[in-house]
């Protein structure tokens, strides 16, 4: 159950003692008190429901609070008033386990370089670079995977974050049925339709092109 108290919080605002709540996103602990770290609305989530996404707090929280405490978090409201194209969301970082949508930038025999565009259902402002290495393309017959038979530059791919990677790249994987290419354009420049797990067809020319196709839901 989410008891949404529509109260506002400003960074630095005292939210309560650390023995009363578990810190959620947008909060921090200072001298065993919980404070807001973001500008937004306060939400208290009861622990009856599975604990909310307590993200990136491992470094701040001194010790995991007892599980029965409600989680308090501060979320940035979406400025949805007016045109929907101007919807403003707080920037998020891709994290291990997130399903992301990305565009293929370039391919090499060893990997595909992609730009991560959407993380979960949040459209990212910044472009984060990701890598799909040849061994992470599919779960079976990994040694027979060819990158150029799986992705082409311009494709839109659904993938999962498997590692924060090196300083520049997130490592992504498409080794699941529902992961892979979801939008592809043929060499003739037409949007194609998937026909099976490894092929897309151009509706105008009728030609088939190889891809690691994501299973449509």
């Amino acid at each position: 159950m989410t008891t949404s108290a529509p109260t506002l919080a400003i960074p630095g605002q005292l939210l309560g003692h650390a023995s009363k709540y578990q810190p959620g996103p947008g909060t921090h602990i200072h001298e065993s008190n919980l404070y807001a770290s973001l500008l937004g609305t306060i939400h208290v989530t009861q622990p009856a429901k599975a604990p909310g996404p307590v993200k990136r707090l491992t470094k701040i929280t001194p010790a995991p609070a007892p599980a029965e405490l409600p989680t308090i978090s501060v979320t940035v409201p979406t400025r949805s008033a007016g045109a929907e194209h101007q919807q403003k969301k707080r920037e998020v970082l891709p994290e291990v386990g997130n399903v992301v949508l990305c565009r293929v930038i370039r391919i090499t025999p060893r990997q595909a370089v992609v730009a991560i565009l959407v993380c979960g259902d949040t459209v990212l402002d910044a472009e984060w670079q990701g890598l799909i290495r040849v061994q992470d393309v599919r779960a079976t017959e990994k040694d027979r995977v060819k990158i150029y038979e799986s992705f082409r530059p311009g494709d839109i791919v659904r993938a999962e974050v498997i590692s924060l990677g090196d300083q520049a790249n997130y490592y992504l994987s498409t080794a699941r049925n529902e992961l892979g290419v979801i939008l592809a354009t043929s060499e003739a420049g037409n949007a194609m339709h998937p026909v099976n797990w490894k092929e897309y067809r151009d509706p105008e020319t009728g030609l088939l092109e190889l891809r690691k196709v994501a299973k449509p839901y």
């Binding site: 947008g26 973001l38 500008l39 707080r90």
Partner: peptide, 11 residues
């Protein structure tokens, strides 16, 4: 910074 949603300990 607050408008951008970057975590701060205080204003």
């Amino acid at each position: 910074l607050a408008d951008a949603g970057i975590d701060c300990v205080d204003t």
